[in-house]
Amino acid sequence: MWGLNLPIVLALAAIGGVLVWRRAHTLVWLLYSLGALWAFFKFGFVVPIPQSVATIYLAITGLALVAYASSSRERLAETVQPIKRLILEPRYRLALAGLLVALPALAAYNAYADLTMPLEAPGFGREIHPAPPPEITVHDETVNMTTGDNPYLHYKADDPELYGKHLENGRRVYYENCFWCHGDGMGGDGMFAHGLNPVPSNFNDVGTLPALQSSFVHWRIAKGGPGLPGPGTPWDSAMPAWEKFLTTEEMWDVNLFIYDFNGFEPRALGQH
């Protein structure tokens, strides 16, 4: 459900329930919160969340817990009380010794696990949608990235029949050329997608097409991977520069089609 590993989530919740029932001490709660969140981030998702994000979350959690523990004098005193007792009272000497051994052992194990992780190819950050140049030239036609727009979009209101023709042409172009990578359903999961890095764009994603002006999409279609600026790692992208294969009209038509297929509108000019 929701991409969660239910057994893990339920187990963590159950422990929390037990703590409520037993009216656990603040310190126990703090330790539980940190530990449970750690476990949740690490094992709680079917698709594991990236280490970097988990680290951010845990850092925030840690900060919040420290803030909570010290948010009043009484609570601080209450929180550190067990620690003080553990350290000071002679009868806990054995437990203290145990802790003194256990924590370094844990750290050592952690370091060991880090070192023996299977090797991976180095990954590099990449800009998914890098900024376009101010204008591009496609087949001797200059398109301004800010003011440019799909020349056929207005048919939608003005001449639905002609609009339909452009859509159909776009459909043809898409299923002749694009679906190998971007997929039949435009989920970025075509039959070749698994072999490509970066993965092809997912047009179903609400954060992709609707966030872009159609001029941007035209830029990506016409200039392809080789037309990306450096931060977009043009050397990796398998997106062809379609201006080599397609006419301007075909490119605008397929642009029209991918928006229409997913029920999205391009970001309008000057839209916030």
Binding site: L103, A108, N110, Y112
Partner: peptide
């Protein structure tokens, strides 16, 4: 591995000492 363990141990001992 040893370094990680020793650092943690040192912090622990420091805390115990201070308290």
């Amino acid at each position: 591995v040893l370094r990680a363990a020793l650092i943690v141990l040192a912090i622990e001992l420091l805390v115990v000492f201070l308290v």
